[in-house]
Design a binder for these strands. Structure first.
Length: 370
DNA sequence: AACGCGTGGAG
DNA sequence: TCTCCAAGCGT
């Protein structure tokens, strides 16, 4: 009787996505990069980024010595930017601590920033033909269904169990099997409405046997999405250049270039949604707050020209409402003395700005108004 | 252990 | 429009 691994391998031979750009290499750099890009990211989203990144930074050394801004520009739009910053740190560690080669044990691989248990296993299996089990969203879902696991899919006890199962099922040819179970999860054992009628594991699937295919995995509770409201300052100088600040590495959009952000203090969403003559809750007019902000933070004297419509950007964990404040600098000069404290701001032409690592909404704003 | 971290496609 | 969630990891 064919076991699950053999059934998956047979299915994969006929139906797998053998044309993916990272499927025909054993180069650890290329395999690792694909794994990092694909974390929490769908194949179709990562595809266009992958080849572009490799063309620009084809090996560990190139990535290790690249300017961080170049790395983030190559990642711009893909999201979860800590992946890009960690990727560069990992490349640097490989150059300094591992003689330019991806390490060949799980412990050492997992010591690289951004490389966890599953990513390490995927690279070791494919680059070095080791028998290592992965446990990503696809493998997790397939195992939960075939074994009819009814516990919380994210609970640590469940994950322990799933890792045991994954390791027990993974055959010697883990490289091929890991691809197989991921393609199977993406094509047949879908998150919603799995194609059980076309499933090669139908007779091995406890969820199918129990009529639970649509109910498993058990849904996880969705945390509430708070709403945040900010203003983005679109400052232009007399030459039409735009002012951007580099965000700190920690937090949202870490390391990216962003429009200066003016937080809305002590006032609620309805105020921000109010008309353009609004006055903030502290009694200072928006126009005056902008002028203070630019003077204190950037040493710039500005004139507020306009306020755009309310726009929205949705993250996984919160919703961002924002307006852009259009303003011009009057004298094109950074105040001497204050300039020393301006570590994070620079003027860009539109074209140069769009070549940098920008958050998606900022890229949209700058593209629209150019 | 629970939360922070992006974006886009599907239904 | 809204909901779900995707090749996870760091803290």
């Amino acid at each position: 009787m064919m076991q699950i691994a053999d059934l998956l391998l047979a299915w994969y031979g006929e139906n797998g996505r053998h044309d993916l750009p990272w499927r025909h290499t054993r180069d650890s750099y290329r395999l690792w990069l694909a794994e990092i890009m694909l974390q929490q990211t769908q194949v179709e989203s990562a595809k266009p980024y992958y080849q572009r990144f490799l063309d620009a930074l084809p090996n560990w050394e190139a990535l290790a010595v690249a300017p961080q801004d170049q790395v983030l520009a190559l990642w711009s739009g893909l999201g979860y930017y800590a992946r890009a910053r960690n990727a560069q740190r990992a490349a640097q560690k490989i150059m300094t601590d591992f003689a330019g080669e991806f390490p060949d044990t799980p412990e050492s691989a997992e010591s690289l920033p951004g490389v966890g248990r599953s990513t390490a296993a995927a690279v070791l299996a494919s680059a070095f033909a080791q028998q290592r089990a992965i446990l990503d969203a696809n493998a997790r879902r397939v195992l939960i269904r075939t074994q009819a696991i009814r516990s919380d899919p994210k609970a640590s006890k469940t994950l322990q169990h799933l890792w045991k199962l994954a390791e027990a099922l993974t055959p010697a040819d883990a490289h091929t099997y890991n691809q197989a179970i991921q393609d199977f999860g993406a094509i047949i054992c879908l998150p919603r409405h799995p194609h059980c009628d076309a499933c090669p594991l139908q007779r091995r699937c406890l969820a199918y046997a129990g009529g639970l295919s649509e109910q498993l995995p058990l849904p996880t509770r969705k945390p509430e999405k708070p709403e945040r409201c900010v203003f983005f300052l679109q400052l232009e100088d007399h030459r039409g250049r735009i002012f951007l600040e580099k965000r700190p590495d920690s937090g949202i959009w870490g390391g990216l270039w962003c429009l200066p952000q003016l937080n809305q203090e002590g006032s609620s969403l309805p105020v921000l949604c109010d008309n353009q003559q609004q006055v903030l809750a502290d009694g200072i007019s928006l126009r005056e707050r902008v002028r203070q902000f630019c003077a204190l933070r950037h040493g710039l004297t500005v004139e507020v020209k306009a306020l755009t419509m309310l726009q929205k950007h949705v993250f996984t964990h919160f919703q961002l409402h924002f307006r852009c404040i259009l303003a011009t600098v009057q004298d094109d000069q950074i105040v001497p003395g204050v300039a020393d404290q301006i570590l994070t701001g620079r003027w860009f032409t539109r074209e140069n700005a769009l070549a940098e690592g920008l958050p998606t909404p900022v890229r949209k704003i700058l593209s629209q108004t150019s």
